[in-house]
Amino acid sequence: MFTVRSFACRVQPPLEQLSETFPNHLTPTKEQKGLSMDTTPTPNKPLATYRDGKLKATLWQNENREGDTYYTVNLAKVYEDRNGKLQETSSFSDTEVLRVTELGKEARTHALHLKREHSLERKQQQSQERNSDRRGGGTPDRFQNRSEPRMER
């Protein structure tokens, strides 16, 4: 059996599960106590989930502290435990490794498509901002102090 290690995965469990496991997860840290903003975590929903039988790849969208968007993928196998409760694992058999790799590729392709769309939107927005600056600016500074047009020969 092969084990796939996590890679840049930031999966947030449901808030109910967090409160059962870590009842004080909403307690602010020392740095947060001085802040006036709301520090309650918001649940993160996956953008897409790709499945192949019991295997799945989940695509997540995240933001870093600077506000930049990045994407992560969680690879898992769903199974039923002895009590009949559904669980997930990141261990895969030799026959499942290739299948889960294909799911990961699909999720990556989706993430690349989203990055391209985001980049195009950002470029269009910057272009519109530049055009509005050109139109709404009035007389350029270099022409402000001229009282009469000069013709020199």
Rank of each mutant, 00 (worst) to 15 (best):
Q32K: 07
D52H: 10
H25G: 03
P28M: 05
P23K: 04
F22H: 14
Q32G: 02
T40H: 07
D38P: 05
N44R: 14
E20K: 14
K45Q: 13
E31W: 08
K56P: 00
L47Y: 04
P28N: 03
T39F: 06
T40E: 07
P46T: 04
G53Y: 06
P23M: 03
L55S: 02
H25P: 01
G53S: 05
Y50R: 02
H25C: 08
A48D: 09
P43Q: 15
N62F: 04
K33C: 09
L26N: 13
T27S: 10
K45D: 12
Q32L: 09
P41N: 03
E20Q: 14
R51Q: 10
K45H: 11
D52N: 13
Q32V: 05
K56E: 13
R51S: 10
K45V: 08
R51E: 14
T40R: 13
L35P: 00
G34H: 09
N62W: 08
Q61W: 00
D38Y: 05
A57Y: 02
L35C: 10
D52R: 08
P28F: 01
Q32M: 11
T42D: 07
P46V: 01
A57P: 01
K54F: 06
E20W: 07
L26Y: 06
E20R: 14
A48T: 08
H25Y: 15
T49F: 03
W60P: 00
G53D: 07
K30W: 09
P23H: 05
G34W: 05
M37F: 13
K30Q: 12
E20N: 10
E31I: 07
K30P: 02
G53E: 01
L55P: 04
N44E: 08
S36G: 14
T42I: 13
T39L: 09
M37W: 12
D38M: 02
T29Y: 01
E31C: 04
T39G: 02
T58P: 00
T27A: 12
Y50I: 00
A48L: 06
N24A: 13
M37H: 11
Q32P: 00
P41C: 06
R51K: 15
S36T: 12
Q32Y: 01
T39E: 03
P41F: 03
D52Y: 04
T39C: 13
S19V: 11
W60Y: 15
T27C: 07
T29V: 05
N44W: 02
K54M: 08
F22M: 14
T49R: 12
N24S: 14
T21W: 10
T40I: 07
N24G: 11
K30M: 10
A48Y: 06
G34K: 15
G34F: 07
T40M: 07
N24Y: 11
